[in-house]
Design a protein around this nucleic acid. Structure first.
Lengths: 122, 122
DNA sequence: CGGAGTTGTAAAAACTTTGTAAAAAGAAAC
DNA sequence: GTTTCTTTTTACAAAGTTTTTACAACTCCG
């Protein structure tokens, strides 16, 4: 289960206006408050944060965090995303984007957004 | 469904005065505004853009994007082209050409236009 | 011009994907 | 072995996407 980084390597923490993710300690701080994340929740958040700004397909998430390959029918990813969002509270919205039909994307706090639906600036 | 390129390969994005298509992230930027494309819309645009300047027959588009072969009776291609054009806004006109009786052609922003007579500009 | 065939468009229907709550199952702690 | 916490499944709701339908508008060619 590739839940994160191998111990020993020194990975600089992610940090922005409201969120800090410490990959060494495997902890996350949200606006000074420590997020109480379970292992899977942390693994999911860490993977998203490590690839901030990039779209990560469901398949990739299911593979990396759960070790599921191929055609697995499960909603556990959605449920975990939901719980992460809940714990991110009012910041859930800007941080975790759903990319319909593809996967999810973590966006740093100030980041131009690719909207999924609606109209285009014209 | 050949919606694009296999992951992992590094394909340089398409880019011109107003439009950028990132084949890695499967996203499109129009004059700084992010285009909110659905999967099919992106697949269609990507295919056209990858063959910029070339006429692509309806059949080819239906095959590549939808996997439809032979004698399929559908108007979904037209509907998707329409939605793409809508999202391209004021740029729809120069970018996506209808080649009557044959198919469609994407033209880079500054491109000499040929009359509709199957004149494939290299 | 006129008609056959093709493309454009709007709206509805059909379908797919994601969100959510609650229950069940599995692990760890006591 | 029971309690507590975590994870997965289930079942349905909500949201989003795609296809079809029906008709209007246009193009080509006689």
């Amino acid at each position: 289960m590739g839940s994160g980084q191998a111990a020993g390597k020194s990975i600089p923490p992610y940090r922005d206006e409201h969120l800090k993710v410490d990959f060494e300690q495997q902890t996350a701080l949200l606006d000074d408050g420590r997020m109480a994340l379970t292992r899977k929740e942390y693994a999911l958040l860490a993977l998203l944060v490590e690839h901030a700004g990039e779209i990560i397909p469901r398949e990739a998430l299911l593979m990396q965090v759960w070790g599921y390959g191929g055609e697995v029918k499960t909603r556990t990813l959605d449920v975990h995303v939901r719980r992460l969002r809940k714990k991110l509270g009012r910041f859930a919205e800007p941080y975790i984007e759903t990319i319909f039909g593809i996967g999810y994307r973590f966006q740093p706090y100030h980041a131009p957004r690719f909207m999924q639906a609606g109209s285009v600036s014209q």
